[in-house]
Design a protein around this nucleic acid. Structure first.
Lengths: 262, 262
DNA sequence: CCCATGTGTCCCACTGAGCGGAACGATGCG
DNA sequence: CGCATCGTTCCGCTCAGTGGGACACATGGG
């Protein structure tokens, strides 16, 4: 429903100039809720001409980036999954972080998240679910604005001022009643995180969801990721989780070759 | 080393006509061993002109499909990981198969693989490693010729004759001394698998690696995946594993809504 | 029953996006 | 120092890609 508004938000107003941009627009039409889409639907969402979409889709299918679905529509192809598994930012972290994440789940009994910063947004790279799987909105490969998540704030706090400025200038979109939307409030929050080394999310990204997060540093001392323990507000005491998260994040940072913090 | 031969194998001899094909060639230059590559290197591998490669890479970076590496080169971007997580063929299976795969690892104590058939090759969708992680060559997102793997033969055996013919016509490449390379031998092997419901890999894909695999069926009764228990030849008695693999595959098929086999 | 509206597919004249040879400055190795 | 190779930039030519329009087919309401 409301099939035309996606394009307005995605491609601003200018028609895409390059073919690759058009193809990228087509790929961007898919999400977790829309796994298989028809040609006309894609054309509508992406704002491309139907004939263009058709030809583009046919080519993408030939390359394995899309594939013919069962309901006559098309869906993302296995080749994308293959390529996705090779992404270094994800791969290297995945390997290194896995044991520490398992420790953290064992110690806290809660959901453990690993995320990286991509520009001004966070991308979840790995999630370990707690034993009693309580459905959380987060998803591996999912993308959220950095200012509205625990892991995002943890990484922003230790990023360059340019990144923080870019985040603010792009707008601090509200996600819940608790989301930090004032630039001044965000700056103060980041200073507090920098001082304490721990970042809390008190229902700022989704109602009823809280987390405690810590930054993870790489060889050059720059922040490369963030770890968090996440759960439902009524069950999880995030202050009590802080030491465990911090310990795991420090251990992971050390194993990545980060210089020992002063 | 030998930087020019990749292109000869990948793009046959004809220069790629479409821009998307060129971009796909660039993305295809990356693998597990080559996570970050320079522009000139990509140009050499893909057979494209250096200026073309440069412009292409810049655009792919703009779209998030590539990103600037640390050593001056470029690497696959996070957006590819994102898209890869949305691939339905992987996603739906992943969710459904996980508990059965864990059962199987628990029951056998060995490595459990889940793979799907993509054309005439298999792609590993999920791998659960045994407690004592003995390094196997398989990798999530990895791709192998179907005729040379246990999971591949399991799926070929229950695929349409056209798929089998396509596999044979594309050539039964040898991977080890035990790989089935004669079309007649493959046809006979597939008939045996069809009869018994179980497929064995006796060091046919890699020396020292054996597995027992079973097909997994979907709603329409067509094969959608394969499960296997894999291990090192000197430690794993694959005949003893067969009942467990078969049980898990049947249970998974049933949970996917497959019609009960006659 | 037909018409209206949806789908996926195909055609083709026009044009501007992309190609790649060439040249550039920076770096590094012998 | 010269030579090689790196990433980057420029620019004229040309053919790949565009998109409006037409088509066959399925659906479903009057």
């Amino acid at each position: 429903m409301c099939p035309t508004e996606r394009n307005d938000a995605a491609s601003d107003a200018s028609s895409p100039t390059s073919l690759l941009e058009r193809a990228s627009l087509v790929l961007g039409c898919f999400d977790a809720e829309h796994a298989e889409i028809g040609i006309s639907d894609i054309a509508r969402r992406s704002g491309l001409a139907k004939s263009t979409t058709h030809r583009l889709a046919a080519e993408l299918i030939r390359l394995g980036l899309l594939e013919q679905g069962e309901g006559g529509g098309v869906r993302l192809g296995l080749r994308l999954f293959e390529l996705g598994q090779l992404v270094p930012r994800r791969h290297a972290l995945h390997e290194a972080a896995r044991p520490f994440m398992e420790d953290l789940r064992e110690a806290t009994g809660n959901n453990v998240h690993l995320a990286v910063l991509d520009g001004i947004e966070v991308v979840y790279v790995e999630i370990l679910w707690a034993r009693d799987v309580q459905p959380l909105p987060s998803r591996v490969g999912g993308r959220l604005p950095a200012h509205a998540t625990g892991v995002g704030k943890a990484m922003l706090a230790f990023s360059s001022p340019e990144v923080v400025r870019a985040r603010i200038e792009a707008g601090l979109a509200r996600r819940t009643a608790y989301t930090i939307i004032m630039p001044g409030a965000l700056t103060r929050e980041l200073a507090a995180i920098r001082a304490s080394g721990i970042s809390y999310d008190r229902q700022e990204s989704a109602m009823g969801v809280v987390c405690a997060a810590c930054p993870v540093f790489g060889v050059d001392g720059a922040v490369v990721a963030a770890l968090s323990v996440t759960g439902r507000a009524e069950r999880l005491d995030i202050e009590r989780m802080a030491p465990a998260v911090r310990t795991a994040a420090l251990a992971l940072s050390r194993s990545l070759g980060a210089p020992t913090p002063t």
